[in-house]
Design a protein around this nucleic acid. Structure first.
Lengths: 196, 196
DNA sequence: TCTGGAAGTTACAGACCGGTAACACCCTAG
DNA sequence: CTAGGGTGTTACCGGTCTGTAACTTCCAGA
């Protein structure tokens, strides 16, 4: 049982945390609710008392992931108060670090790859949360005084997203090793062209 | 039955083609062998006479995909014989076109997201085929006279990969719309810096 | 016309899936 | 002490999954 995470807390929290971990490691369709509840040290009935379906649990996991990712931005602000450019570089470093932590890509991207039904409830929240993340990165670029903030943010975002899937397909020794160099080069280039 | 592709040909070919189509649309774990054989106008026993398991079928589908993608490069050479820079721009246009054809990402990336077992037979071939694709793009960049060919190829590759997952998560109207602008800008920038 | 192999058919095994029912338990708030 | 809500337990439903067995049908080539 490598999927522990059974610290004593309220069953709902344990289920949510365990499900997040197992969905991340083994994929959504690769994990059944029985396995989740067992790893969470509880049982199926309790799961269905707190979540109305597996799909509902999936959505809650994605929201929890996004909340955790959102908290990351606050640490940048705390670490470099007011210095938006430093925060942008901190984002690059953090992103690069994530590439080497584990070989699994973004949970939302993976979920979108697995859940192909066009009206699956998870697809709505994935789009919402991804768009919110884009807004934050665009805002950071703009506040850092970069002229074409949207273009830089989108480029960095696509690079990072691509690096994550690259790690998942060819491993951490592939093209993703150049991510920092690419990102830093882009920031320099965009700062050189035009400032707000 | 929207997953037709039942033209009269040998059962093995029909199964392979149908499986490629259905895996692409609905994901690998989202399609059972019964559904494949039915859509291919044959039956399960015939599938298992030609493929030793579903995993084997998956691997063959990935190889077939890669073969089709490989043929794409030959069309570039045929269209712009000897003009490697033109072929690189053709790659950019082709990549951009793929972003708008359907909302599903790269089959290999999606497969890697779904098949999480570290020793799954598909993971080997995904890595092999992705590395082969990288070699081709690096070669194209180098032959186009670009100094840092590997870095440009990896950057373009990551951008494209990221654009495909972006289409899958937020749709074709998201950051991926800027893909051509990003790619062309990078090529210009790399050509300006140093040439071979 | 005969024959052999490829393909189709039906049924089944064994496992797993998401989800529910009915009931026993425990622990805390009143 | 008691009542009640949250939790645990067991069993079950109907469905789907990969994979196999045994048998029939068809068709091309000799």
């Amino acid at each position: 049982m490598t999927d522990g995470v059974v610290e004593r807390s309220r069953p709902r929290d344990r289920i949510l945390e365990t499900a997040r971990d197992m969905f991340h490691k083994h994929g959504i369709k690769g994990v059944g609710v029985d396995a989740i509840t067992e790893a969470a040290g509880t049982n199926k009935m309790t799961l269905y008392r707190h979540f109305e379906s597996k799909d509902d649990l999936i959505v809650e996991c994605l929201r929890a992931n996004a909340a955790k990712a959102g908290a990351m931005w606050d640490t940048f602000e705390a670490e470099f108060p007011g210095d938006k450019l430093a925060q942008l570089h901190a984002w690059v470093r953090k992103a690069a670090a994530m590439l080497n932590t584990d070989g699994r890509g973004c949970d939302m991207a993976n979920a979108a790859a697995e859940l192909t039904e066009p009206d699956h409830p998870a697809r709505r929240v994935i789009k919402e949360l991804k768009e919110a993340q884009r807004e934050r990165l665009v805002g950071l670029c703009r506040d850092a005084g970069i002229g074409q903030a949207e273009l830089l943010a989108d480029t960095l975002s696509l690079l990072f997203e691509g690096a994550r899937v690259s790690v998942q397909t060819v491993g951490a020794e592939g093209p993703s090793t150049q991510f920092v160099r690419m990102a830093e080069g882009l920031i320099v280039s965009f700062r050189g062209s035009a400032a707000g």
